[in-house]
Design a binder for these strands. Structure first.
Lengths: 234, 234
DNA sequence: TTATTAAAGTGTTGTTACAACACTTTAATT
DNA sequence: AATTAAAGTGTTGTAACAACACTTTAATAA
């Protein structure tokens, strides 16, 4: 029983809590994930998802923000908990419960601080992720699945694009994220019909054909619509 | 840094890991949750979600199955991790990280073993859940949200119904779960059109009007369809 | 200055999904 | 045999959507 056992200290034992964060980005062509290379055993030289141990008096969400800031130089980025991975033998050196998060960043803003992290963090296309340390491949897969579900029901794709973007960029992002193609005309009609994008006067630059209009996601409008029971889809 | 700090034992510290499980059921009229009453401090006499501490060499999923079996007498029930709740001060007696799950059971099969749990576990309608111990209300809300999302995209509603059920029962379940109404004719056409239900010869009994046909969910068929890229919706 | 290019952006049409609502059917009870 | 209450079906107008052809436009090349 919960109440009785908690009193006995034998039920509190020594182990680690860590956080691991799958950081997604989009470079205009591919959906990518930030992967680090481990420098020490166990799993030396294996790829891994960035993470860290949580301090004794630290909230895991704060720990993740800390890691993320060290890694990318960014604050206030989209961040959501995935779930905990807590198998008994997931870590060879002792029991470590990890709480996995995923975050979406504008890859152009990525600006690693010079630290032991950032030096060997690399953007890897999601198709190219292979073997990883610990159960990190499982964490990655799980994060990707969650993102694919989420992105269809919430307007979070914009987190992966620059503030100002073209509809073609947006379409391309969704195509890569969901592994499917969309008809250009229909995609535009659907997205613009939601009335969530602010068309800007600004046009695309430095292309040698007709330049596209730039848009910006209107988060206030989305909040409004949500209150009126609007549900984003696709 | 992950690698360096893990070596120091100061980063592994003593605290508890628990699991908590939000158990959903449907009695034909209302969606309910199993709630227990706490017998000891802290939060004595408060309502709470059933859970327990995880043993030193135990997988949290196993721990949850153990709790669930003690509580309901059931095995092999639908069970999914929600997420971890790990705030520094969520437990007044020390740091306890809890991994929250939710499960769906056929309320008719509920058959509590005589144990300290089961005695005071009660089915509470989801609208009536109020104050709870710890952050359990937050866990409950979070579980309900997740269920509401999940139930629209995966055929898991059936987990809450008896093996054999009528379409009216199914419709009623979805209405209560999602807080909306469906047109009878349209609901039937949609559900039957998915070809996921096996119509039985058996008819509803003991009603004083035209009895409805009973159906059974065809999980093999669903597995088949899923392989052929079918996606359940609504 | 004009022609060419490549993608931006729009219009049309047939099909399907769905909401709304009326209707018929049926077993049990009166 | 009539009544009841819910089961179960049919119809119709509307809206969403897929498919695909077409027009427009700024930049570059000729």
């Amino acid at each position: 029983m919960y109440e009785k056992e908690r009193a006995k200290s034998s039920t509190h034992f020594t182990f680690g809590i860590s956080v691991d964060c799958v950081v997604f980005g989009f470079d205009g062509s591919d959906v990518k994930v930030l992967v680090i290379k481990r420098g020490t055993e166990p799993y030396k030289d294996f790829s891994a998802i960035p993470g860290d141990l949580v301090h004794e008096q630290e909230d895991p969400l704060d720990a993740t923000k800390r890691v993320l800031n060290e890694l990318t130089g960014l604050k206030n980025i989209y961040l959501e908990q995935l779930k905990a991975f807590a198998g008994v033998n997931r870590h060879p050196l002792g029991r470590v419960v990890t709480i996995a998060y995923y975050s979406l960043i504008k890859i152009g803003d990525y600006n690693p601080k010079p630290s032991s992290w950032a030096t060997d963090a690399t953007w890897t296309s999601i198709q190219d992720i292979q073997e990883m340390a610990f159960d990190h491949f499982e964490i990655f897969s799980s994060a990707l699945n969650r993102l694919q579900e989420r992105v269809r029901l919430r307007p979070i794709g914009f987190e992966l694009l620059p503030e100002e973007f073209t509809l073609a960029q947006l379409q391309h992002l969704y195509e890569k994220l969901l592994n499917q193609t969309f008809d250009k005309a229909n995609f535009r009609k659907k997205i613009l019909g939601m009335d969530l994008l602010i068309p800007l006067e600004k046009m695309q630059k430095a292309v040698r054909h007709r330049p596209a209009r730039m848009y910006r996601f209107d988060s206030n409008r989305y909040a409004d619509l949500t209150r009126r029971n609007f549900h984003f889809e696709l």
